[in-house]
Design a protein around this nucleic acid. Structure first.
Lengths: 228, 228
DNA sequence: ATCTGTCTATGATCTTCATCATATTCGGAC
DNA sequence: GTCCGAATATGATGAAGATCATAGACAGAT
């Protein structure tokens, strides 16, 4: 499987004409990262834009007091570093690998050139940013008005939808997730995340096995997420 | 002052060549809104993209239990409805006028055409979305890890910076803000917003007169905002 | 000027969750 | 297997802030 097959399978590159491919393809280079590696750090000057081919990455920010906040979890097809590459400021968050991955990188300069030459890329970038703004808005609302149980139920459901697969026992979230990760995604502490998820497990709403979470009773989880 | 002068003064239209103006200018129509008017509602199909000429608008989401969350506050030069116009989904939030305003509207179709024809507009849209994603990330972090006092101090400082003017008594936030608005911007309740701002007033960090807030002691407010 | 509704104010109480403290379990290294 | 660090578990306690209740201040309408 060469870079071309990889790129063509990604939504980001849909709509590019056959002959334009030749010019585009060589601008991307493949890189591999291991679990826990950093792809870039918050505040760094944007060197490149990344397209995830396989694996999972979380984008997080740390606060002065050591508490981390996970802004998003990305998988195959997602872009990393878009904001910084286009406005030239530092990366707004740190990108850390949660499951070994392979990414395609394009230098900031090449990326800007590409977008100027092929309007279709500009539209793809707009689509990406738009999707993220929608989910940011939802995350803001959730943090602002919902209680911890609701937020955790919501995050589990969202992960199951975007990165889950069906198994006999339920819907499996296909990534290794610690309670700390869940806490950082929902603005709470490890202890509370543990308590809530233990409660979910006792209620037979979820199962957990070696870092993986399985949603057993999705309707009830949805009720909890929508509660009140 | 005709539409042309208005448009040219806005950052969104910088970089457009002289003769392209003729084709662009007629696509925009001016509309006036009064305080508390809705420009569009959450979930509505995107009819148009709006550029604020004068006045202030808040974008908010309501939750099922009646609690509102203010996602952003926009002023002159800001775009409204960008996400929905480009992805075709419903508006992600409700746009409500907080200070009488004049906006320039371009229909969704014309907007899409424009962006396809003039790449500079696509870049302006990308810039707008990027800025908003940065501030969303900051808002998420703030809601996730900071205490109410910090969040309120931070919001006041941000408003003073983006929409403030200097007066002898301090920096004035140039918009009518209720405690409810502040509460909706910081994910808390009216009562708590009132308590915190009363405390700030007693500490002579701020003054309030007829809905306007004046920041008297910015350094101390910054300390509070950065506090752990 | 007086009414009226909205906004601000403040106290009392109750929940939720953070914090602190300690086990216990698990998975990998050796 | 045994050791070890990380992740999970669970209790006790306290603090931040929500909720409920009530009252006063203020701006605009008549």
């Amino acid at each position: 499987m060469d870079r071309r097959d990889i790129l063509q399978a990604l939504p980001f590159f849909a709509g590019l004409s056959e002959r334009d491919w030749e010019k585009v393809i060589d601008l991307f280079s493949e890189r591999q990262y291991k679990k826990d590696d950093y792809i870039f750090l918050e505040g760094e000057a944007p060197e490149a834009l990344y397209v995830i081919r396989t694996g999972k990455v979380k984008v997080l920010r740390h606060s002065t007091d050591g508490k981390d906040v996970v802004l998003r979890v990305c998988g195959p097809g997602n872009l990393l570093g878009t904001v910084a590459v286009f406005d030239g400021g530092g990366y707004p968050g740190t990108a850390q690998v949660i499951e070994d991955c392979s990414v395609l990188a394009i230098s900031r300069n090449d990326c800007l050139t590409l977008v100027n030459r092929y309007p279709v890329f500009a539209l793809a970038v707009i689509a990406d940013l738009g999707t993220r703004l929608r989910s940011s808005a939802e995350q803001i609302r959730s943090l602002a008005v919902e209680r911890v149980e609701q937020r955790i139920a919501r995050v589990l459901l969202k992960l199951a939808e975007s990165a889950g697969s069906d198994a006999p026992e339920g819907r499996v979230i296909e990534m290794p997730l610690t309670r700390q990760d869940v806490a950082d995604m929902t603005g709470t502490t490890v202890e509370t995340a543990i308590r809530v998820m233990s409660k979910f497990r006792r209620q037979e709403l979820i199962k957990t096995r070696r870092g993986r979470v399985v949603l057993v009773d999705i309707p009830t989880l949805q009720e909890i997420a929508e509660m009140r």
